[in-house]
């Protein structure tokens, strides 16, 4: 398999930003703004989304001529609001349905975001396929990339709330 040429930080930033904003505006009618990028803050972790609220994190990977994974972090309250908007249910209905509905909605939003990002990679000559979404719930997440993987973190603001996209990227040898 030929080795893929690294993509510049600026291009990656634009691709992630476009994928995120397309999903938020199309599915949730929310405008988003990229407010923090790890490339501008070497060695720093992004500002925490919340001090107290637990997080819901969607993860979707892409495998092919380029491999990677994006974790999408949302505060659990924001995740619930987003789910309400997406499926047209009230917060009470969401509560009665349980965490599964929120997990599924966050999984699907992550799937669409990663889809948009990796489709652009495909069109740049790096064919790859999506993996099935998975969900993590909890607090104080720290992502430790493998030694041969690159990590880029992007924080967005939408509807007065913040969300973080954590991209891990591995070029084939």
């Amino acid at each position: 398999m030929p080795s893929a040429a690294p993509i510049s930080d600026t291009v990656l930033r634009d691709l992630v930003n476009k994928a995120m904003s397309d999903v938020l505006i199309t599915m949730l009618a929310l405008n988003s703004k990229l407010v923090w990028v790890s490339d501008d803050h070497p060695g720093e972790e992004p500002p925490p989304l919340s001090q107290n609220s637990p997080l819901v994190v969607g993860a979707v990977g892409f495998i092919g001529d380029i491999n990677g994974l994006i974790y999408l972090h949302l505060e659990s309250e924001f995740a619930k609001l987003v789910t309400c908007k997406l499926v047209g249910l009230s917060p009470e209905d969401i509560d009665s349905e349980g965490d599964e509905v929120v997990n599924d909605a966050v999984g699907e939003l992550t799937n669409m975001t990663v889809g948009g990002f990796k489709n652009a990679l495909c069109d740049m000559g790096l064919p790859c396929n999506l993996t099935i979404p998975s969900i993590l719930r909890g607090s104080n997440f720290t992502i430790e990339p493998a030694t041969n993987a690159l990590r880029h973190v992007y924080q967005f603001e939408a509807d007065g709330r913040k969300m973080t996209a954590d991209l891990l990227l591995q070029y084939n040898e």
Partner: peptide, 9 residues
């Protein structure tokens, strides 16, 4: 109806 796009796909 899929997130899998990309021209060749």
């Amino acid at each position: 109806l899929t997130a899998e796009g990309g021209r060749e796909h």
